[in-house]
Design a protein around this nucleic acid. Structure first.
Lengths: 211, 211
DNA sequence: GTCTATATTAGGATAGAC
DNA sequence: GTCTATCCTAATATAGAC
């Protein structure tokens, strides 16, 4: 693995672990086991590393969000879809934990981040419409927009919230509950299918929780 | 006004404006128009100012959250109640924008912050039960818990989210939309009253928005 | 209580040898 | 590409006079 890539990899590791603000260039160099001077040969400091990491995140998120929304999605498909989005956020969680600061410091990233959130929102709208087409939920357009906005917010902050509320940082379990919470939000729009649906996702919840 | 209080007041101002991490003790001294040395006479640095500000927040939030939940709350009461909670968060928004970092640095505050969120959640549960007693909404216990958790999350992160999504920082308007979004979440549990309810809160929304 | 002056340190950054 | 040595700066913190 090239030094350049090792720097990126370890920066991400430390940023996620300790928060970007609490990681110095020397910390990174130590973790990579090179000299600070060498680090500066590859990157002119954190101000260059961060946008580079963001670009990876952006690309992966773009791929993830291009879900195949024309086909009918089963509940399990939806479960997996949300799970994968959460995983992506988890992998770059340092970014989400410091959003205001980071977006303030990098206006270019702010623009692009907003674009990602907008995409996320559109994906949730599409997912909702898919459920609608299958006759699983009934909701008006304003309700749809409002619900999508809410879900987008939960997708954005759930991992933060969980970290704040419980000191421990067990990724999979937290993601798992996040997916469950989100899918539960569709229940009230399901009419008589509601009970079946809740039972189904509760099953997913318990199932994967044990794993 | 005593110097000590002026330091606290201006620290809060700068923290909210620029983020705690971007405000130095010298910045604060400048804003208060005293020397850095003098600042250190009153406080041993930001590490002492922050918990002091948190204590104010904690106290005010405690008062706000002690809502009179036994009486039947009108929709307008609920509107005002949520609005006031948001205002409190807005006044100490620097804290919410840096939650993970700050709670990591001050474990004692982390404990107390979790307690506040738990109170917030209980308040929302109480508010929901109040609507239930009035026959305005129908929901099962798990639904109630899930809805309350969601609303607690929105209460916690809405202002952050809005700042991220729109660069501008217009407090009242953002709070206003937050309240609207939250109340909208009760709609699907209202049965036939739903349309009336949505119309009513839309009215509040447009009304206060013009003001 | 308040000031000025100064010490200390950590982090960011570069020069030059290998 | 990599290292060592070194510099610069911003931020924290203290001492001592007024």
């Amino acid at each position: 693995m090239k030094t350049r890539d090792r720097i990126l990899k370890n920066s991400l590791l430390l940023f996620n672990q300790d928060g970007e603000a609490n990681v110095s260039t020397v910390d990174i160099a130590n973790e990579v086991d090179i000299s600070p001077g060498n680090l500066y040969y590859h990157f002119r400091g954190k101000e260059v590393i961060i946008p580079e990491l963001f670009a990876s995140f952006e690309e992966e998120m773009r791929i993830v969000l291009e879900g195949p929304f024309e086909k009918p999605f089963t509940v399990e498909d939806n479960w997996v879809y949300l799970y994968v989005i959460f995983e992506e956020i988890f992998d770059f969680r340092f970014f989400y934990r410091n959003l205001n600061d980071l977006l303030g410091r990098f206006p270019d990233l702010a623009r692009r981040f907003r674009e990602i959130v907008a995409r996320k929102n559109r994906a949730i709208v599409a997912l909702t419409e898919n459920l609608q087409r299958q006759g699983m939920v009934t909701l008006s357009d304003p309700q749809k927009e409002s619900l999508a906005l809410h879900i987008t917010m939960v997708l954005t902050y759930w991992l933060n919230f969980a970290t704040v509320m419980e000191a421990d940082d067990d990724g999979p379990a937290v993601i798992h509950r996040g997916v469950y919470q989100i899918l539960l939000q569709f229940a009230p729009y399901m009419g008589e299918r509601e009970d079946d649906f809740v039972e189904l996702i509760s099953l997913f919840y318990q199932q994967t929780d044990a794993a």
